[in-house]
Design a protein around this nucleic acid. Structure first.
Lengths: 217, 217
DNA sequence: GTTGGGCTGGTACCTGGGTACCTGGCTGAC
DNA sequence: GTCAGCCAGGTACCCAGGTACCAGCCCAAC
């Protein structure tokens, strides 16, 4: 049984979704919410909720912020953002917020049901209309061929240091971060530079980012 | 009328796809190909092809490389990768290569047809099963809110310098690259650091990458 | 048991990076 | 005309970063 909560500020929309979902034997509408705050309350009250259908535009707390806060809850449900607008920025923000689905309100009931079942099963789903924006985003982040860090044979400690270099820390900060002396840090840095063939820490930082060690936060 | 070319090394698969597509009045199978080279030939021969269904595993020239080469052709068709394997790396490579769709062979005929129509109309489509990998990728590239470089009010020259910092050049190299003296470069670097609030060039380099100035190539 | 490699730490030294402050030419706005 | 801002350049100084080399500890492999 898939337990769903519906969050939308419009009563009619909530009822419509509810109708569609209730028609299915394997889906149960556990709660509904008129804003993000109510959504969070509902999820905290009922730990068994699997899926949250969330509108972006809601009073008090909007869908994106609510999604972000949901992620902090231990038994957080999978979030499907359901909205009228296929604004690229919304889509990407939603994904960044942790949403596992993105559905346009103009989608069919069939799409809604399969989206709910897909994310409940651990999958992810996008409306066809917005897939393009996401693909563009993936393409724009450069080739997938990440730098093969393994080839450089870095030790665990050296990888730690390289990660922090990539985050922009100086030697002193790295030392304090890893509870080491400056000398030790310098030794590790020197080894990292030698092993990776980086001339200086700037090159190493770029490498760390390319390798996905230090994702630009 | 949507004109489609089918590229797959297995005769039966080609015939199967062909059957499905031919059943539709708005779709015409213009050609088929048993490998990437034949696919490229077919597209070059017939400039009116709209959509290419491409298998990844093909002899002579595989689907990914063929897709990349296709992109160089002026009237290039939209590419839908159709494969048995939902390997994440394949998906992301395919997207990076320029594919606008990614379909698993276990998808339904209905999915295939809607995928063809979607990409022919300029859209993009992913199989539900692989959407998750793509979303992870989007998430892993950090928040969508790229650093707003415009807010820092950098001058043209300062932007040049920041770009080269992000590429890992030292001051001397920047000077030679921009035909400037070291002193001038240092001045610009100092201004860039001040304006961007970066403590040192490492931070500035990270910023340049985040802002997309110096994309990790 | 000793040997090699990783981790930690130290000393000494040199250079590139970064700061501070100044000069001067050029251009466009007021 | 003069004023502001960008660009180019210079000098002087300090320090973080990087190099070189050494030593002790620990542990797993041989």
């Amino acid at each position: 049984m898939i337990r769903v909560v519906i969050a939308d500020d419009q009563q009619l929309v909530r009822d419509g979704f509810s109708q569609i979902l209730r028609s299915q034997p394997d889906i149960h509408v556990a709660a509904d919410a008129a804003d993000g705050r109510q959504l969070l309350d509902a999820v905290r009250r009922d730990p068994r909720i699997d899926v949250a259908l969330v509108d972006i535009r809601m009073p008090v707390l909007d869908g994106l912020h609510a999604t972000r806060e949901l992620a902090a809850i231990p038994h957080a449900p999978a979030v499907i953002i359901v909205t009228t607008f296929d604004d690229d920025a919304y889509v990407l923000d939603a994904i960044a917020s942790g949403a596992r689905g993105f559905l346009l309100k103009r989608s069919s009931a069939h799409d809604l049901l399969s989206a709910v079942r897909t994310v409940a099963a651990g999958g992810a789903i996008l409306s066809a209309e917005i897939t393009g924006a996401v693909l563009d985003r993936v393409r724009s982040t450069g080739p997938v061929t990440r730098v093969d860090l393994a080839a450089h044979q870095l030790t665990a400690r050296e990888t730690d240091v390289l990660t922090l270099i990539g985050a922009g820390l100086n030697n002193d900060e790295i030392a304090r971060n890893l509870h080491l002396s400056m000398s030790t840090v310098k030794t590790h840095v020197a080894n990292v530079l030698a092993k990776t063939g980086s001339r200086d820490r700037v090159r190493a930082a770029i490498l760390a980012i390319q390798a996905g060690l230090s994702p630009p936060p």
